[in-house]
Structures are given as C-alpha cells and as structure tokens.
Amino acid sequence: MLPAIEVRHVWKQFLIRHNRADSLKERFIGLFNQRYRERCEPFWALRDISFTVEHGEALGLIGPNGSGKSTLLRLIARTLYPTKGEIIVRGRVAPMIELGVGFHHELTGQENIYLNASLYGLTRREIDRVYHDIVEFSELGEFIDVPVKNYSTGMYARLGFSIAVHLDPDILLVDEVLAVGDERFQNKCLEKMLELRKQGKTIVFISHIAEIVQRLCDRACLLMQGRMVELGEVSKIIELYRSAAAPRVLTP
C-alpha cells in the first residue's frame, strides 16, 4: 500500500512584503514615487523537507516557535502550496489546525454542523449519518439549537473538535488543539485521538507537550529553522529537542 503522506523535497518561500501595496491606488502611486513602492523580501519557511507517513502511523512534529511546523501542516492540509517539491496525500484529510473555523455566529449549532461538515466535502447523507454522534460527543445537549454566538469558548471548541473527529477522515492533522475546554474534555479528546489511532487513522500532530506526543505518536520529526533535523523514535527526538533548543531559548 502506498504511503498516506509523501513529502518530497518541499521548499516553502514566503514573501515578506514591506510597505505592502494591496490596492490599485498604491500600485499607481508606487509607479511615480520610489518611497511608496512595495519591496518583497523572500523568507524560506521550509527547506528541502522529505518524509513519508504510512497509513495508520502517527507522526509528531516538534520544534521551537517559527521552525515551520505549522507551515508544514498547512501544506499537507493544502491550504498552502509548496514553492518547490511536491506533497502527495492519499485519503480524506481532517485538519484540526484551529477549531470552529467557518462557524457562522448567527446560525445554531445544528446548522453549523451541516455547514461546517460540508466545508470539508461531506455530502448531506454523510452528515446525516454522523450528526447524532457529533451532538453527543460535543455534550452540548439543548444548546445545539442555540446560535453559536451565545456559546462559551469551551462549547465552541467542543463542537469544533467533535465535528472534526466525525468527518470520517483517513488523515488527521492536529495543531495543539487539545489545549481546549476543561481538563475532563481535554482527556476525552486525547482518548478519542488514541481511539482513532487504534482504528488505523493516520495522524500528524504538533505539540509542545512531550508526554502527549509520547503517548500518541510512533515517530517524531524535529524541525528547526525550516530544516528537518532528525526523524525517528519519539523519546530520542524529544531528548534531542531539549538539548538543542532549550539552551538557546533560556540564554539571553
């Protein structure tokens, strides 16, 4: 069986746009006046990243802030495109990069479930099938008929998480979303992730919390300044990360 995710020599460049001209007016002025012209500074967020993730495998991405973890996750989620190289993803992806994205405040929880799930490409019938599981897992009860603008942050996130895990994904992309809700719900989320893993789902996971990575992931990948430092056994990578990153963070 072909791997779930193949990342092949992926480079990602962002243009940091100084003095950004995002209107015709500014472009026009820029023609005559050097001072108002836009300047672009290239910045390589990822350099030559290659790895594969097999079906049913859980990979942890570890690295300090700005190391390119989130960029990599977004490339796999296809909201960003690589500048060079290619990424092949086989299966339905459920990105849990931020919860509750695409909720509309005026709509009720129920209406948002249908709208949100269709944003991930589910058909009406598929949503009908998982609707009750989503409501039950979210523990929202009667609040499901209330507009989400009246939800608390926790309720909002619970609904978001519940939808994401019920999309019947083959691949889950998780960006530290477990830090939502109260501790009980956090544990419930973690249990759900472990359960999904047992069901053979592929998971790519970003977290700063070593224990969770250790519990959830088979392998881990250490990223620093856009480069892949090492890919291997989780405990080894965590150790490497601590020795490599910590002193740099702590010393002024």
């Binding site: 993803v89 086989r90 709208l115 269709s118």
Partner: peptide
Amino acid sequence: MSTIETQPSLFQYRELLKNLVIKDLKVK
C-alpha cells in the same frame, strides 16, 4: 501519482454550495 487525486472537485462540494446559499438567505 499526480496531485489530481487529492484535488477536490466542485461537484463533490455541491452540498457546500447549497449550504452557503441557504446560510446567506437565513442570515439575511
């Protein structure tokens, strides 16, 4: 082996199109 297999088609997302229109009508 192309990226086409993961490129979502518009037809597959007809439900979304419908829901977005309904959402706009409802909100309005």
